[in-house]
Structure formats: structure tokens, C-alpha cells
Design a binder for these strands. Structure first.
Length: 102
DNA sequence: CCTATGACCATAG
DNA sequence: CCTATGGCCATAG
């Protein structure tokens, strides 16, 4: 078994993402910070890339620090964001308006 | 051990 | 807007 990070650390990330309100978004860095793991934005993205296709986690509410969507299937993410009332322009959301920070 | 890659980020030019 | 740089970390080859 490769030495992966503890389930507790992963769970902290998942909990934060699950807590993002409907109609709001977060950045990868925000999530790392809120999960008590500052500077680990990259790992957050890595973790999300390993989510099962049928996951109920609102992964679509996560964008990068510029508000841009950098997901492999950007179209799908855009669709899901618009479905909950979040406006997107050229695969980008207005963080000033939708960013969620406790 | 090395390099390359990736749903990242801040800063500089 | 763009690219480059340095930092972060896991995984693959």
C-alpha cells in the first residue's frame, strides 16, 4: 500500500466541500484553508479528481482562485452551476458575487 | 532517484 | 489577457 494521507485529512476536505451552500462557490485554496490544511490547494484538486462518478459531493461548486473552471469536463460543471442559478461567462464565475467564506 | 503531469496559487513582467 | 517562476503534493513510469 502506498502511503496515502489519512482518511481524517481527506474527510476534512470532503466535509468543507459538502458544506458549500447551494448557489455559492469556493476556490481550491479556500477549501484547503477551511480544512486546516493551508497551501494544499493542489491536493484538493487531486482528491476531487478521484471522486467516483456517482458522488453526491457538490464538486461543481469548486473553482480556481480566478473564478475560472479548470475541470476536465468544464461543460458539465458549467451546466450544473447554471442549474443552481450561478451565472458563468466564458467558463468563469464572479467570485465577488458567489464566493462563500464562513 | 529522476522527470513528467495535474480540477492549484501568488507574484512578476 | 498571456507566459514564466517557485512553491505545494501525489502518482506514474
Amino acid at each position: 500500500m502506498t502511503a496515502r494521507r489519512s482518511t481524517a485529512l481527506k474527510q476534512a476536505i470532503w466535509l468543507v466541500i459538502a458544506a458549500i451552500p447551494h448557489g455559492r462557490v469556493c476556490t481550491y485554496g479556500d477549501i484547503a484553508n477551511m480544512a486546516g490544511q493551508p497551501g494544499q490547494a493542489r491536493w484538493v484538486g487531486r482528491l476531487l479528481s478521484e471522486l467516483p462518478p456517482d458522488s453526491t459531493l457538490p464538486w461543481h461548486r469548486v473553482v480556481n482562485a480566478s473564478g475560472k473552471i479548470t475541470h476536465p469536463n468544464a461543460s458539465k460543471q458549467v451546466q450544473r452551476l447554471q442549474d443552481e442559478g450561478i451565472q458563468t461567462v466564458h467558463q468563469r464565475v464572479a467570485l465577488k458575487r458567489y464566493r462563500w467564506q464562513p
